[in-house]
Amino acid sequence: MQFTGFPVAAFDFYDDLEVDNTRSYWTAHKAVYDEAVLAPMKALTAALEPEFGSPKIFRPYRDVRFAKDKTPYKTHQGAFVASGPATGWYVEIAPRGMRVGAGFYEASGPRLSAVREAMADGRTGPALKRVLTTLEKADFEISGERLKTTPRGYDADHPRIELLRHKTLAAGKSYGFADFIHTAELLDHVREDWRALKPLVTWLERAFAAAA
């Protein structure tokens, strides 16, 4: 299937799902999800696969076993291309439009220590800062879960202490409801932005390699 954009029906589907997140709504509108959301996402990621790798298209069902919120369905559809464990590129359709990004969403133990050591290093740390500055100038937003305190083993006055507080790190950009998301042109935008994010992904790959 050739990618031709996400139809307006995809966003209408999620607008209504936010209001009526029930099995009865889902069952009645499953064909809309399949045709307006899932099929275009598969086509988009298939077109990107030769350059970036095999995608994981997330299931639409929420894991509610231990959640207070028992609504059964996610109100967005995401896809992820991994360059390593919990690290890679992301694209998402949601009621508030489209967005793309890249980074790492989980690192614990040796992996988190390795990325912090690379952030603190006098050579690799400034290199990451330059990558993030370039991305910010290209309208990407830098985000991630962060400690409120100073991570153990580092000084509070370290020149990159704000980076060192990160437990996750991502750069993302929202397309909102730009006209191009309904056309094949969206593929070019995602490809261009994922390429712009490649230096961040590469930096993370090298930092995590120290923990392998």
Rank of each mutant, 00 (worst) to 15 (best):
M1D: 12
P7Q: 02
A9R: 07
Y14T: 05
Y14L: 05
Y14V: 02
D15T: 14
D16C: 11
D20C: 10
T22L: 09
R23N: 15
Y25S: 05
Y25W: 15
W26N: 08
K30A: 14
A31P: 08
Y33N: 05
E35G: 04
E35H: 12
E35V: 11
A47H: 01
P50M: 00
G53R: 06
K56E: 14
F58Q: 09
R59W: 06
R59M: 06
Y61D: 13
F66G: 09
F66M: 13
K68C: 12
K68A: 14
K68E: 15
D69E: 07
K70R: 14
T71Y: 09
Y73K: 01
K74I: 05
K74G: 01
K74N: 11
Q77M: 07
G78W: 00
F80R: 02
F80L: 11
T87K: 01
W89D: 01
I93Q: 03
I93W: 02
M98H: 02
R99T: 12
G101D: 05
A102S: 05
A107I: 05
A107C: 01
S108E: 15
P110K: 15
R111C: 11
R111W: 12
A114C: 07
R116M: 06
R116Q: 09
R123V: 15
R123F: 14
A127G: 09
K129T: 14
R130L: 14
R130Y: 10
V131E: 03
T134V: 10
A138Q: 13
F140R: 01
I142D: 07
K148I: 13
T150G: 06
D155C: 13
P159Q: 13
P159E: 13
L163R: 09
L164F: 09
H166T: 11
L169R: 01
A170M: 11
A170F: 06
A171V: 03
A171E: 05
S174H: 12
Y175T: 04
Y175G: 04
A178Y: 05
A178R: 12
D179H: 11
H182N: 09
L186P: 00
D188G: 08
H189Y: 11
A196N: 01
K198F: 08
V201K: 00
A211K: 02
A212G: 15
